[in-house]
Design a protein around this nucleic acid. Sequence first.
DNA 1: TATGAATGAGTTTTCATTCAT
DNA 2: CATGAATGAAAACTCATTCAT
Lengths: 211, 211, 211, 211
Amino acid sequence: MSQPRTSRADAARRTRARVLTAAREQMVLHGPDIGMDEIAGAAGLAVGTLYRHFPAKADLVAAVVAEYVERVADDAEAACERVTAGSRALDEITAFLGRVIEASARDRAVKAAAHALGADPGDKVAEDRASRAVATLLLAGQADGDIHPDVTVGDIYLLFATVPADQPAAARARWLALMLPGLTTHPRPTPRDRRHPVPGSRQGAGAKGET
Amino acid sequence: MSQPRTSRADAARRTRARVLTAAREQMVLHGPDIGMDEIAGAAGLAVGTLYRHFPAKADLVAAVVAEYVERVADDAEAACERVTAGSRALDEITAFLGRVIEASARDRAVKAAAHALGADPGDKVAEDRASRAVATLLLAGQADGDIHPDVTVGDIYLLFATVPADQPAAARARWLALMLPGLTTHPRPTPRDRRHPVPGSRQGAGAKGET
Amino acid sequence: MSQPRTSRADAARRTRARVLTAAREQMVLHGPDIGMDEIAGAAGLAVGTLYRHFPAKADLVAAVVAEYVERVADDAEAACERVTAGSRALDEITAFLGRVIEASARDRAVKAAAHALGADPGDKVAEDRASRAVATLLLAGQADGDIHPDVTVGDIYLLFATVPADQPAAARARWLALMLPGLTTHPRPTPRDRRHPVPGSRQGAGAKGET
Amino acid sequence: MSQPRTSRADAARRTRARVLTAAREQMVLHGPDIGMDEIAGAAGLAVGTLYRHFPAKADLVAAVVAEYVERVADDAEAACERVTAGSRALDEITAFLGRVIEASARDRAVKAAAHALGADPGDKVAEDRASRAVATLLLAGQADGDIHPDVTVGDIYLLFATVPADQPAAARARWLALMLPGLTTHPRPTPRDRRHPVPGSRQGAGAKGET
DNA sequence: TATGAATGAGTTTTCATTCAT
DNA sequence: CATGAATGAAAACTCATTCAT
């Protein structure tokens, strides 16, 4: 009797998911100033319906951001499990950072919108999941002697907050390479490989047309 | 004849300066989406006058950004001269980074506006001055063996572009500490020493207007 | 089910018609530079609603012009039918010209706005209807031997384009009298007869809103 | 002593003439909505100086129109004199009409501005000169039996007011051909020559790029 | 008298949000 | 519950006109 009655709760949930997907896509495509009408249209709804699910634009953006946090938490937890299964913590951390950085680049417009609207993600649960998983990863890395003992979860969040999301992929990779020595106990990878491909000297130059 | 000579040109220059100051202040206070009317009001002018000096909002923002670049160039050149006078390049670079980071934090709204409007700073001269001075500093540090040989001016700009401008001063200091190992040849301070040497923390300590 | 079916579409159509009427009236009253706010106010709407129906001022003006073209087409076709039913083509043409001239006088501001905005009427269908009907009228008149064989539809449009719309009704009537000999095969009425036969003077006599 | 003192009165007159020429040129080039700053710049003056000579834009436009009327008066009087010297009145009238029509086409933007601003030419003297000369021409033509006895000076002005100024030269020529039978006692020139070059059927179509 | 910086009301257009159907 | 028309405040920009120098 609870299963056949999918109509009410399920329909609402599905609509919500459709709106969130459309909102993220539209923001990525047309920037954070995309109008509510466009988002509604992309979700196959009327504005009124959109406002029924999210009382204000800030709420919608907050939900999109929360979804993003959820994905990060999932990713961190998966990395955790692989470490438990025997994978090297440093490798998992490095790969995890790389994935989050790329995701940030994809969703930078979302973050811009969140910031502009002062949207509060609010999803404390997902945030805690992510924090716990990242802490576990760091502890494992520190136990291995690979991660500096004073590196905290806050440091990782600080890095997430400063990803050069609007720069080309090569710049993001270089940025991660510059960051890693601050996290690890290892010296710079290989002092011999010069000439990394940071295209322009100006910030933001060449920001268009990337992956 | 001496009085009227300066009065016209000077009045225009002073008005321009007043507008730029007001624009920067208003953007810092109320975000980059501040209206032209507000800026004009803060400068004690009517909108029309503002538009006489800057034909479009993008021009005004570009001018504010150009002013910022000019200050960075001045700072970098001063550091250069101190190195020439015998100061250690690594110390000057570290202090310079700290100062630019604090300036970025103060003017973060300006940069947001510049990005949103696609404003072209245009001040290639100041940009070149800054680039040359930074290059000189890096070369000196590399000659001392303190800066990694593969670090470029582009790397420094990449860092500038990702300053956690909207974070508290302590976070910015920590962020710089995380970045430095990527630039220098020195290992992390001492694994047991919890007090990491944050160079620019002196002037960042009493910083106004943060969270 | 019968009520809601019409209500949505009908309301939109009625709003559109209300806007068009208000726009035409305001333009006739206050000139073609009338603001969108005024038009909205005259239609009992907010500006936003006006912009929902017509995305730009040029679109609104184009719609008003298209409505005018439609009326001319209707008029020409009606005259055509009367000719088919036995009415003399020359009389119908003369009366038709008189009516269009009076309509032009009423809507002169609209045409001025259309020209100023480069608005594209776009209603090719109505334009074709008008052209075909006028061509038919001319052919019938030429078959009767009343209309000069070299008169074309383009000539009629040329006259329409030069109607002295902002002159008193008497001047418009006199203007038509001066034009007619260029269209017909008949000589000027009678050199001594001071009362020249102005066809459209009946409906032009009581015309509203002129000098 | 009056000649060497050209400074005061003459300088003012020359400035005035320069402004008028610049105003006409700018209006013809950039339409009747050209700004006062542009006109001042084209005349090599500052706006303030322009406003010293013409207290309001309407006054400047009125002066430009008055200049136009003056030229028409000169033209009409010259034609008068040629008739007195033996030239055929009908020929002179026809040529005069053609010249005024072309001048109207050149200065159509001026007339548009005059109408939009409600500028009152005011130059009653030039207007009277023109009227008298035209009356003389018409009387001569009527004495010859070429011009219809009921044609008045007002008719000629009515034609001037409705010149298709924004149409191609061919359309203007055709328009004059359509008008002439209304003025003369002669039948249509040659009923045999069909196909006149009126380009588009729509009013205003093809209005760009003419002589 | 010439200058041109300053004025400020006015114009078009956008968009988050509401509410009658 | 969904719909989408209506709202109206706000933003960028223009331009005739004034006035201190």
